[in-house]
Amino acid sequence: MIYIKTIASAGTYESNDCIVTIKKADTLSIEIESVVFEQFGNQIKAVALKTLDDLNVKNVSVFIKDKGALDYTIMARIKTACKRLGVYHD
C-alpha cells in the first residue's frame, strides 16, 4: 500500500527559527503565530505568499510558528516542508 503524506513540517522552535507545517488543502491559506507578530506579522505573511508563489504551490494550508526567523529562514523552511510533503521537487 502506498502511504500518501498529507502533512509535513520543517524547522525548529529555537530562537531565530520557525516551524512551518503544511497540509494539502483545497485552497491556499496561511496562519501565523509569532513572537514578533505585532512588528513583523505582515512581513512574514508576504514572504510566505511570495515563496509559495515562486514554488508554484497553491493548494496547501500553511501554519507558521515563528520565533523571530528572518526572511531567508522562513523561505527555506517553507521550501523544505513543501518538498517533504511532495508538492514541490527541486
Binding site: V36, Q39, F40, N42, Q43, L70, D71
Partner: peptide, 9 residues
C-alpha cells in the same frame, strides 16, 4: 537589511 523594517506598534 538584516531584519526588515518593523511596524511601529
Amino acid at each position: 537589511d538584516i531584519a526588515g523594517e518593523p511596524e511601529f506598534y
